[in-house]
């Protein structure tokens, strides 16, 4: 229950092509995350799946049924909005139960389901409050309660945590992931937060300018990016991308090496440079090394390596972890 398939989905706003030819399969029970830079069409794609926007072309199937022309309420999905979109004049109870009420369920059954959902989300003591009497995190939970109470075929989340502070975000992230696993309901989650994407997803869909750049598990995207865009987008701090003579030496137009895959030494062969900034974070140290012909290279080393600004160092990329890209930005894979 809850397999979502997109076939050649397109969306134009007037002359602007916002989503072009997206093919995607979301397996039943999977947690799929859409990531991409701002304005790449993540929200639009989610709204197309929800039925809040009409597709310009292509088809959307849920459990094998073509829902392309069905209104949102007939698709059996529920959505958590970035602004929560709670109904301000209804109590928490009313908010969570609204969908059931619209579905015409008997009162006692609504009450029972609302209580159950509230218990799952630790909202029981707030059931009679209005949304404005709740904190941001509590509102967020009400929005999630509204989504789960209808037992939908799938959840759609549009950046649900972006209005919360950092600590609460981590908690809610874990809570949402736990809840989704417990309910075994398909979820599509939009975010531009790397950490959310990497930690929550079974599968990440990287979008860029309305196209799918790559689909894969978090580690697949990290270890084997298909192209320059994904290589640069996934991973924090960003992968170092080097062109020119050095790349030619590896038989590529561009080579990429992640900051954590560079070995730092004082002597020997490699890329020679000087440390222009050293950031000590305690567990890690980030070095920004000025390398001749290459520019600023980010390096991540463990612990306090005794390196400081102005030191001259040699960087050696781990050849097994080096990514090579051709002139079009496609990954070159050893045959």
């Amino acid at each position: 229950m809850g397999k979502i398939v997109l076939q050649g989905v397109e969306k134009h706003f007037g002359d602007v092509k916002v989503i072009s030819n997206v093919d995607l399969t979301v397996e039943d029970g999977a947690f799929v995350v859409f990531v991409g830079p701002s304005g790449c069409g993540k929200s639009t794609l989610l709204r197309l799946i929800a039925g809040l926007e009409d597709v310009t072309g292509g088809r959307i199937l849920i459990d094998g049924v073509d829902v392309t022309d069905l209104p949102p309420m007939k698709r059996g999905l529920s959505m958590v909005f970035q602004s929560y979109a709670l109904y301000p004049h209804m109590s928490v109870r009313g908010n969570i139960g609204f969908g059931l009420k619209m579905a015409g369920l008997p009162k006692d059954e609504i009450a029972r389901k609302v209580e159950a959902a509230a218990a799952t989300l630790n909202l029981t003591q707030y059931l009679d409050r209005k949304p404005r009497q709740l904190s941001g995190g509590q509102r967020q939970r009400v929005a999630i309660g509204r989504a789960i109470v209808r037992e939908p075929k799938g959840f759609l989340f549009d950046e649900p945590l972006s209005n919360l502070d950092a600590a609460l975000r981590v908690n809610m992230r874990i809570e949402i992931a736990r809840l989704q696993k417990a309910l075994a309901t398909t979820a599509i989650y939009v975010t531009h937060d790397q950490v959310e994407a990497m930690t929550m997803a079974d599968k990440i869909v990287v979008l860029n300018a309305g196209r799918v750049e790559q689909v894969g598990s978090p580690l697949e995207l990290y270890d084997r990016p298909d192209n320059l865009f994904v290589a640069g987008f996934i991973g924090s701090p960003k992968m170092n991308l080097v062109g020119g003579r050095i790349a030619e030496g590896y038989g590529a137009a561009t080579v990429g090496i992640r900051p954590e895959h560079l070995l730092v030494g004082r002597e020997g062969d490699g890329w020679r440079g000087t440390i222009s900034v050293a950031e000590h974070l305690g567990s890690d140290t980030f070095l920004y090394v000025d390398v001749k012909d290459v520019g600023l290279v980010t390096v991540r080393t463990q612990g306090e390596a005794g390196l400081r600004t102005g030191d001259s160092v040699v960087l050696r990329p781990d050849p097994a972890r080096l990514h090579r890209f051709d002139r079009d930005g496609r990954a070159i894979r050893a045959a």
Binding site: M73, L77, S78, M79, F81, Y87, F98, M102, R146
Partner: peptide, 9 residues
């Protein structure tokens, strides 16, 4: 978004 949420509900 409130209208959309109600629509989805």
């Amino acid at each position: 978004e409130q209208k959309e949420a109600a629509g989805m509900d």
